[in-house]
């Protein structure tokens, strides 16, 4: 089920590497030369304000889209050159947690977690059941196995999705905004799960988020993406001591700064005067 690590990964080199990645949607440049390196066994956070294309970054890594220029290397191979079958083989070694869980609504919790196993393996029912219950136990939801996705709270749905993401024993786990819309307790639970799964299963994790506090606690290294490029990287201590205004604004959550509070508009007074004269 799990393929042998590729030579480059075994030597301790980067498991995921983005080198000078440019990505354009129409005429709009979303990325202008992004460089990100993810070390094997680490938790890497990719942070940044909304709308900076963090989710697009994940789609580049998982081979859903190809960069306009630059290379995305995963498991030592350039994703853009992979054929469809190779992309699917690569994805079997990855797990991904979607923002809202993306559980299949017509299957119960147990079958959702069993889904990848049923699709890709021919395990005897007893083995499959054991595997699924083990993963559900790991996220603390073995008791919810018979519930339907509609009956789950947001935090529970995300933990079920996490169990599903790890059921194939992936080498890389990707989290897309794992903390959005969760209450403080669920947030803490998910954060602890990310850390403990990473260490216990020897997984490499990539967390895309804008929850600075939560991510800062668990991440080994962070990259802050803004304006189409990485504006800062390092451990959370290194980031905290950064003197860049854009980094400080993001970390402290200041309303105004390099990212302006106001959407670009004509001069306020001229606008109001025009409204008055129109009456």
């Amino acid at each position: 089920m799990i393929e042998q690590p590729t030579p480059s990964a075994a030597t301790g080199a980067a498991l995921v590497e983005l080198r000078d990645v440019h990505y354009r949607v129409g005429s709009r440049a979303l990325f202008n030369g992004v460089n990100i390196t993810v070390q094997r066994g680490s938790i890497t956070a990719v942070m940044g304000p909304s709308g900076t294309g963090k989710t697009t970054l994940l789609r580049l890594i998982t081979g859903q889209i190809a960069p306009s220029s630059g290379t995305v290397t995963v498991f030592g191979r350039d994703v853009a050159t992979l054929r469809r079958d190779d992309v699917f083989a690569m994805r079997k070694r990855m797990g991904m947690l979607f923002q809202n869980g993306a559980l299949l609504t017509d299957l119960d919790v147990f079958e959702n977690v069993a889904f990848p196993l049923r699709e890709h393996t021919r395990l005897p029912e007893a083995v499959l059941r054991t595997l699924v219950l083990m993963k559900l136990q790991a996220v603390g939801l073995r008791g919810a196995a018979t519930l339907m996705p509609q009956q789950l709270s947001g935090g529970m749905a995300r933990r079920v999705a996490l169990a599903r993401a790890i059921v194939m024993d992936p080498e890389i786990l990707i989290y897309d905004e794992p903390f959005v819309g969760l209450d403080p307790i669920s947030m803490g639970v998910v954060a602890r799960l990310i850390r403990s799964l990473n260490d216990a299963l020897g997984i490499t994790s990539i967390v895309v988020s804008h929850d600075v506090q939560e991510v800062g606690v668990i991440a080994d290294q962070s990259f802050i993406v803004a304006d189409g490029t990485v504006i800062a990287s390092g451990t959370s201590e290194q980031l905290q001591s950064s003197t860049q205004p854009a980094v400080q604004q993001f970390l402290q959550g200041a309303a105004d700064g390099p990212v302006p509070f106001h959407y670009p508009a004509a001069d306020y007074r001229t606008d109001l005067a025009a409204a008055e004269s129109a009456q």
């Binding site: 998982t62 859903q64 699917f88 083989a89 994805r91 079997k92 990855m94 991904m96 979607f98 923002q99 809202n100 993306a102 559980l103 299949l104 609504t105 889904f115 990848p116 699709e119 890709h120 599903r164 194939m168």
Partner: peptide, 12 residues
Amino acid sequence: TDQLTAMQMMAV
């Protein structure tokens, strides 16, 4: 709700 993308990500 990303279910189709999730399937693609699970190589289905």
